[in-house]
Design a protein around this nucleic acid. Structure first.
Length: 274
DNA sequence: CCTCTATGGCGAA
DNA sequence: TCGCCCTAGAGGC
């Protein structure tokens, strides 16, 4: 259930708890048994995230294919649980060097061993990531502003905005007051910059908090001090999955429309077309 | 028991 | 644009 902030958080947890000694790797469900046997007993060199791609680099003693490439897709999850957990379909299990915690992979879209060349190939397909400081924002702005595709579509293009998913798309556009249907070429440089800068801020916050919170304090409805729990995704948001509810800013009802197979949410009043 | 849903992305048509 | 893959939890009967 991941957008980029989740993947970066997973990389951080792996780096904090799984390096420094040999890890036990297995595939209880059996699907990745070959990879697991090659990695078992070796050390993790580094875990890192680019957009929604998670890479776990093992030491070179593993062989030429020393990186585990994981993409969680829509329903995959990597959870840190007690080592004796058996629940569900555990495709890959990595036990930390102290044997106190296990990373359990369930339902991934991809999980495979790759070499350095394939690692570079995946990076080449991945655009600038608001959570990395190596992003080339100038060329991103040019690409967006030369496209006839809508900004709602462009934001989901991982070659342009790596790590952005359906929630950050909806929330960044709302906060910038931009309709998802405006073509990229009709946006000003300042508007594209505004979207990018907001994603940088929101996603960094998401990594720290472990959930997507986008509502500014002055717009938070009075909940008498109670924590809301508006939605399964856990955070407090302006428009995502709030169709039919009142906009926190203007009171109009939030709209919903299926666009390219995904549910799009926005406020027609705060995000006017033009 | 069944059906539906989800923060993704791929490949066939 | 559609169907499909992967999983788990919620809700309906």
């Amino acid at each position: 259930m991941p957008e980029g902030h989740v993947i970066h958080r997973l990389a951080r947890t792996l780096n904090d708890g799984f390096r420094g000694g040999p890890v036990a790797v297995s595939s209880p469900q059996g699907r990745f048994a070959r990879a697991a046997s090659l990695l078992d007993g070796h050390r993790i060199r580094l875990a890192e995230a680019y957009g929604k791609h998670l890479f776990i680099h093992f030491e070179d003693t593993v062989g030429p294919e020393a990186t585990v490439y994981i993409h969680l897709g829509l329903i995959g999850q990597l959870r840190f649980e007690p080592v004796d957990t058996q629940k569900g379909q555990i495709r890959l299990r990595i036990v930390d060097p102290t044997s106190t915690c296990a990373a359990h992979l369930r339902g991934p879209q991809f999980c495979r061993l790759i070499d350095r060349e394939e690692f570079q190939t995946i990076l080449a397909r991945t655009g600038p990531d608001p959570l990395r400081d190596d992003a080339d924002v100038a060329s991103l702005t040019t690409a967006v502003r030369s496209s006839r595709r809508s900004i709602g579509t462009l934001l989901m293009d991982q070659k342009l905005f790596a790590g952005v998913g359906n929630i950050y798309r909806a929330e960044a556009l709302f906060r910038q007051g931009i309709s998802p249907f405006i073509p990229g070429k009709d946006l000003s440089e300042q508007e594209v910059r505004g979207i990018w800068d907001d994603l940088v801020e929101l996603m960094a916050k998401g990594v720290e908090e472990g959930e997507i919170n986008t509502v500014r304090s002055e717009h938070l409805p009075d909940r008498m001090g109670r924590k809301p729990r508006v939605d399964d995704h856990g955070g407090e948001v302006y428009v995502y999955r709030r169709a039919g509810l009142e906009c926190y800013v203007c009171g109009h009802l939030i709209s919903e429309q299926v666009l390219q197979g995904r549910n799009l949410f926005w406020c027609r009043h705060c995000q006017p077309e033009r």
